[in-house]
Amino acid sequence: MSLDRRKFLQRAGAGLAFGLAPIRGAQRERPANPGRPLSPSSGVGLPKSWREMRKLDAHNHVFTPVHRPNANWSEVENLVEAAEVLGIAKLFCSHPIVGGALVEIETVRDANNSVLAAMKRHPQRIAGYCFVQPGNGPAALDEMDRCLDAGMIGVKLYNQFKYSDPAVFPIAEKCIARGIPFLGHSAFLTDPRALAGQPKTSHALDFCALARRYPELLLILGHINGGGDWEWEIKGLRDCPGVFLDTSGSVLEDDTIERCVKELGHERVLFATDSTMEGCVGKVLSADLTAAQREDIFWRNFQRILDRRRS
């Protein structure tokens, strides 16, 4: 499809992201059998007005170097366009260095600059996490200050260090001092090849270790459905009440959200997509939740975290 964004929004009727036309489709036409008359008020399918439900995507990314001259903005524009269509009010994005690579601080700054550029272009839609590597030492802490002073709201760590590693502690301490969330890449990988590719990826028990050392840290276990045994992860968090988790990831497995709520309580569950945008909206819409629980997960729980930031 080659629609540009303006045409897309016109056709989608999504220029007013939260004032969309009446939804048709699955809600409009849901016969129990072919040919059976439809019942628009049947309550079948997606909840009514799902696009208008406020949503904060607590885990997303800007990977394109859009801060450089003649940048290709298509990834960012597609991201914003999708958020508008899906009723996601704000995307909280980072640009981690992936693959387990440990890089110089200049490369880290360059990655963060792409997020800052996207924030500048779409200030109402994109907010940023500052990616840092504990291995950069004091320079990592300086980079946190630079990013936060430029408007970012938290830090994102990837898989260069286990979060139980003492190298991570100064970053956690700075997060506490500034009252900002620490979003951590996570997975309990049971596939030997996947684990070999990222041996220092933290799992629930690593998060618990950090949370026990720093109970006041706003710690978020990233993408419960990002690949790996999510049931193990949920059980691993049961005894660590201070740790939140986000719902993102490409795995859309039934019962994930309900298991999170049952084992951890819905207040610890944060809506996010990690680029699987339709899927992750759909998961929360499908989950057996009360309206209040769904609203908390879609945005209130994360808003409470944001409200705890100190200048």
């Binding site: 629609l3 339709e278 899927g279 759909g282």
Partner: peptide, 20 residues
């Protein structure tokens, strides 16, 4: 991919198809 996956994601996609 039911019953492995939630159905909602595919309903969201179908509604987006209808809009686009």
């Amino acid at each position: 991919h039911m019953p492995f996956d939630y159905v909602g994601p595919s309903l969201v996609k179908l509604e987006n198809i209808e809009r686009l």
